[in-house]
């Protein structure tokens, strides 16, 4: 942008970047090195900045634990299916709201409200329902709930993206004989692809890391990764190695997803937040 940026200026910029990266990423670095430390090295004084030799023990323990593998599988499935469900319900609704103002601003407010409900409100009724209808410890139950909790934000973001598409493009397609669903599929979706990327990350963030519902509604079969990770915590004083390894393990897919769509992520929010 600034053509006159001198070499010194560049150096200053890079120095600032480096400073920012160190400050922001140090905790992440610490989490990662913790996962490669033996239990005895965890809280050593002075701290061990870089464990040499690094131990893979924590990861080996994780991957040889059938519970971890099972919950990893569950988490992947549940987050994936939730994403599809949110898309199937949310995109048509967002389209309808953006294009025809169905529901109006009232529905927008209702959608906000849905994000404000505190957990104490739903844990007991949900547990009762889940047990009563044989939905306890079933992955599908979590999918339905995560869909509900993710849907409002998804719709809200999608409405923003869809509003930016000029009516004329769709109208042209309609004249060519496409149905509404056809228009959504063939015209709208390709145009908001960057937006979809950022919605995807937001959705993954909320379902992948969720704990309160998962711990209430699952026991063995459908247990998700955060609940399994939580069981490393309170019972003994040596679990931080495995817990940090599990933390790294659980963050990896979402970080990779974030990096993959990084360009779209920024672009996507342009459409969503720009006037």
């Amino acid at each position: 942008m600034d053509r006159n940026t001198s070499r010194a200026n560049y150096l200053l910029t890079y120095a600032i970047w480096l400073f920012l990266l160190v400050v922001f990423l140090f905790p992440i670095y610490w989490l990662i090195v913790s996962s490669f430390k033996t239990e005895g090295q965890q809280f050593a004084i002075p701290p061990i900045w870089f464990p040499a030799p690094a131990t893979l023990e924590n990861y080996i323990n994780l991957f040889s634990d059938a519970k971890v593998i099972n919950s990893l599988k569950n988490s992947l499935l549940i987050a994936g299916i939730t994403l599809v469900a949110v898309a199937a319900l949310g995109i048509p609704a967002a389209y309808s709201m953006a294009r025809f103002r169905v529901g109006g601003s009232f529905m927008m407010l209702v959608i906000f409200t849905a994000r404000l409900l505190p957990p104490v409100a739903y844990i007991i009724p949900l547990f009762a329902i889940a047990r009563g209808f044989n939905l306890y410890d079933k992955g599908g139950t979590l999918v339905a709930l995560y869909t509900f909790f993710s849907l409002p934000l998804a719709i809200w973001m999608l409405v923003g993206f869809i509003s930016t598409i000029p009516d004329e493009i769709e109208d042209a397609a309609m004249i060519d004989g496409a149905s509404r669903l056809g228009v959504i599929w063939h015209v709208v979706l390709p145009l908001i692809r960057p937006g979809l990327a950022s919605v995807t990350i937001f959705m993954l963030l909320s379902s992948w890391n969720e704990f309160a519902l998962a711990v209430t509604l699952t026991a063995r079969h459908a247990r998700t990764l955060p609940v399994t990770m939580y069981t490393f915590v309170t019972n003994q004083n040596i679990a931080w190695g495995e817990l940090s390894a599990a933390g790294v393990l659980s963050a990896t897919p979402i970080v990779i997803a974030g990096l993959l769509v990084q360009k779209h992520l920024v672009m996507g929010l342009v459409a969503g937040s720009g006037k």
Binding site: I123, V215, A219
Partner: peptide, 26 residues
């Protein structure tokens, strides 16, 4: 047999009391 092992704080502070209230025979 089937063993349900839950995180310690949650087990005794919220899950079992909830089950005792609901009495679903878990």
């Amino acid at each position: 047999y089937e063993a349900h092992q839950l995180p310690p704080g949650e087990w005794i502070n919220s899950i079992l009391p909830t089950e005792a209230a609901v009495r679903s025979g878990l």
